[in-house]
Amino acid sequence: MTKKQILSIILLVFLFFICLFLCLFYKLDINNKELILSYIRIPTIIKAIISGSCLAIAGMFLQTISKNALADPYLTGLSAGAGFGIVISILLFNSVNYSIFGFIGAIITAFLVILLSGFSKFSITKLILIGLSLNLFTGAIISFLILKNPDKSYEMTLILTGGFSSSEISDKFLVILFILTLIICSIFIPKLNALRLDNKLIFKNQSAANKYNIIFVILAAFLTSISVYCAGILGFVGIICPLLSKLIFGNDIRLLFFTNILLGSSLLLFSNFISTNIIYPLQIPLGIVISIVGVPFFIFFLLKKGGILNN
């Protein structure tokens, strides 16, 4: 690692802890301290860290195997699948825990897309096109359901923009699930370093490369589903964080795995802080804040270091 990279990591860790501190203690009312910390702030922080990390890592996996900077975690039709699950749970079950339906919807869609892409004749292009088709198909059904249920349309639209209020889940379960997934991911990380190069040079044949491609698509789908479980459908994080990490820290996936966790978490923690405090007590939907906060940074780095993306 170069001195510059070490300094950048130290800065990133520092940024992460500042965001964490702000989200925990900024304007904390002393009279209701325990109530607010245990029921609102700590669960939100856990969800922000898990959701941000999952999206950033999933984005990195898909951008690397597809060798396409525009690939995002919802590539496999996950957003529409999750959205469909959420809408169904609100309409049919008037459900509080719609995030579990989102999670199930995302998982089912992802595996359907992977299955349709075919294991023996698997190709990334086929996967993207099938994911896109399913996205459009399910998206149309979601729009129809929203229009046909005007009583709940506003609520559904708001929920679909994502946010940490969306789930009421056991933090312990979520943390265990997240750590287990991270461990599995870290086992396969060295292979991802190989996949970013020309597959013909590294693997004996295309099917050997495809085996790993499928593993990483499944892992990305699972990570994204965990994120949906925590925070609903949050766009943009899964594109911007892997690209930003690459711009700042280079191409080594082992390092990027770590920096993506920090960057994704920090972005969501900071966006959550802005969304709850900038026009307090009113809240801005998280999805909107992420784009407003993230895009200027991203464009700045893109203009400054955009050349690296060609490598």
Partner: peptide, 9 residues
């Protein structure tokens, strides 16, 4: 849409 903390306080 408001902050839950505001309502609690």
């Amino acid at each position: 849409i408001i902050s839950l903390e505001y309502a609690i306080n």
